[in-house]
Structures are given as structure tokens and as C-alpha cells.
Design a binder for these strands. Structure first.
Lengths: 191, 191
DNA sequence: CCGACTACTTAATCCAGGTTAAGGGCTACT
DNA sequence: AGTAGCCCTTAACCTGGATTAAGTAGTCGG
């Protein structure tokens, strides 16, 4: 919880009392590697703050291939935003890449909290605006760069994740097959 | 201004007084087709609400090709979020596809307004959260679908834009060349 | 310590979509 | 009315990355 509060306090001021109220609505949840937090068709009642470990948000296409939309390392939020906002069944999956721990809040509780702690409104506005900035930049990358350039951009942007993630997940994120990423990396090593 | 206020009031409650204060900070700006609102390297002091016409947000890659990240028809907001948030020079362009009219606010003024009108904080939170939802879904589409499927998804999501936009801009948005889009559309018509 | 997964590699073949180039029909100035 | 620019089309050829298939390690549960 300390980690969580520190994270919020990087953006907004929170009194001790606010912090008390806030933490009352969050529930910790531990998750083993490969276990699901959210599956397609779920009502996404919850949004998740990652305390430890690393999660992934992804879709599965009609041919059974997975496509990673976002990673969720410690200190990040992760959810299926469309499903969460509209409270309708979602089309995305969230699971743990490693054993992880998250804090979850329900949509209803967050709406209650907005009324009691106005600073939260600002916190989540900034959070969402930063996410928009990141998605805009990722579209620049995905629309204008080759696979190799996208890989390099990814390395620059998330240097710590490179060590932590299996290669196939990086392939899925940058939008190539694991086979092609493997070929690509070995080609550039050998010459 | 009426159109603008109505748009905000779809999400949050705004007193007559709030509305008065708010509109004082926005400035109308008319823009001829092909004229720029923002160019690469600009300090993006302003964010834009589109009152009439249609704009585009795009990048230009090292080979001179344009890649459209988002369209801005009437009733939408448009800006280079990264540059706007951090107040650093941006790498994106915004220009008018048709003669258009926008309302602009500076970052400093918006920050002032947040303090005076708390409802605005909520309005922009919801706006950004909806944008995140849209970007997540667009990544699903761009990572898992073929060019033809992406075109169909675009038609379903923005049926009115299809009529309004030149084909080459749609090609740029879905991530194919104008030549390929043309071939694709004519093939499916003839059989 | 064994067997079954899972992660990664290599290589042959294939195809969606890019590139280049040329021509035709608008619209819009002058 | 003429001409300069778009914008769209068509077609031949090319390539980045997908697909398929097989093989090699590593690792983890029992």
C-alpha cells in the first residue's frame, strides 16, 4: 500500500485522511504466472494497479493468435478501458507473465471515491492523458517503422522490460511472429 | 460556443457562471484547407476543439510519407498529447482537410480553469479515458486484422467520415498505400 | 532424475502489400 | 478555354514478414 500511495503522491497531494479512505476501497490480490485476471466476455468490474510482477493486456484473434496491447509492470495501471468505462463485456484478456500482486478497485467504488477525494479526479485525468500520449507515439512507431525499428524503439522506451520478458511476448507487442523476431535478432548479431 | 458548451454538458454539469468563465479562455480560429495548426518542432501551447470542418493529426516519416494517427471532425478534440503535456517540441502535425473552425486554449489557461471549475477536471478525465479505450481497440484492429478487415472496421466505426474523406487519407489511417487501397476496393467490387 | 512442456532457432516456401511508373478524370485557377 | 495539379486507377515487379515444419535446449513438476 505504501508503494501505491507513493505512486499517487507523485502526481497529487493526498492528506493522511484521504489516504486512509482510499486504501479502504482497494483489495490486494496475488496471481500465479499464467493465471487470468480478466478474460474475454468478462464484465470488467475492476481496474488494477500492479504492485509486483508483470501482467499483459491482449486480444486473441479468430485464428487463435495473441496480440499484446500493453504490458503492466510494477507501478502501472492496467485494464480493458472500453469494457471498464461502459461496464459491458470486454474482448480483451489480462494475465500474469510472472507471479504478481495487484490492487483492485471496482468501478462503483472509484466513482464513490471521486466524490470524496477530488484530487483523485486529477490523478486519473493525468494518468489517462499520459496513456493517450503513449498510444499516440506508439501509433507513430507502428505506422511508420519497420519491424527492426519498432524493436529498437521498444528497447529504448522500456530497457528494463527487455530483460524481463520472454522474446515471444516482445514479438507479439511489436507485431511480428516469434520466428521472424528470432531471425531478425540473429541476423543483426552475426554481421 | 453553444455547440462547444453543449458538448461539455453532455458529460458534466456546468453552471451559467462556469460557462461564462470557461468561454472567456477559448479563442476561435478559422483555418483554410491544407493550412497548418501545428507543425513538427512546435511548442504545443494549445489544445483544439473542432467546431466545424475536419482536421488530421499525423506524423511524417524520414522518407516523407504521412501517417495519420487521428481525424478530428466537428465535436472532437485534437492535439499532440505528448508535446502538450510536457510542453516540449512535438513530432506531429495537425492541418485542415477541409476549411475548418476550432476553439483553442493554452495549457496554462486550462490549468487555471481546473482550479476554478472542478467539473472540468472530470470532463477531461472522461475525455482522456474514452480516448484510451478507442486507442486500445484500434491496436486490436491494427495488430490482428488484414488491410481489408481494418478498412471494414473503419467504415463501421466512422460511417460518416467515409463520405467526407479522400481515399488517400483513409489509406494513411489504416496503414496501407493509396495504390493498394484502390486495388483492394476495386477487386471486391467486381466479384 | 525423468518426461513433458515451453522458449527459441533455422530454413524452405509463400503471399499481402509495397514500389514504380504511366495514364485518365476532376477541379481550379488565369 | 486551357493548363496545372490533384486524386484515383491499373499493372508489372519486388520484398518484408508469415507460414510450416523440424530440431535443440532449458526447466519444472512429480
Amino acid at each position: 500500500m505504501e508503494f501505491f500511495l507513493a505512486h499517487i503522491r507523485k502526481q497529487v497531494v493526498l492528506s493522511a485522511e484521504d489516504a486512509e479512505i482510499l486504501t479502504g476501497y482497494f483489495r490486494s490480490r496475488k496471481l500465479k504466472k499464467k493465471h487470468f485476471l480478466v478474460q474475454e466476455g468478462d464484465m470488467n468490474q475492476y481496474s488494477f494497479f500492479v504492485v509486483a510482477g508483470i501482467l499483459r493486456l491482449y486480444s486473441i484473434d479468430p485464428n487463435g493468435f495473441e496480440h499484446i496491447i500493453q504490458f503492466g509492470p510494477a507501478g502501472w495501471w492496467i485494464n480493458d478501458m472500453q469494457s471498464w468505462l461502459k461496464q459491458t463485456p470486454g474482448n480483451l484478456y489480462i494475465d500474469a507473465i510472472e507471479d504478481s500482486e495487484v490492487l483492485q478497485v471496482s468501478k462503483a467504488d472509484i466513482d464513490t471515491l471521486y466524490a470524496r477525494i477530488p484530487a483523485l479526479e486529477k490523478y486519473f485525468r493525468l494518468l489517462a492523458e499520459n496513456a493517450v500520449a503513449a498510444y499516440q507515439q506508439r501509433f507513430v512507431s507502428s505506422l511508420s517503422q519497420s519491424a527492426k525499428d519498432r524493436y529498437n524503439s521498444f528497447c529504448q522506451l522500456y530497457p528494463t522490460l527487455i530483460q524481463q520478458l520472454p522474446q515471444k511476448h516482445i514479438a507479439s507487442y511489436i507485431g511480428v511472429t516469434p520466428e521472424f523476431l528470432s531471425k531478425m535478432l540473429n541476423q543483426s548479431n552475426n554481421q
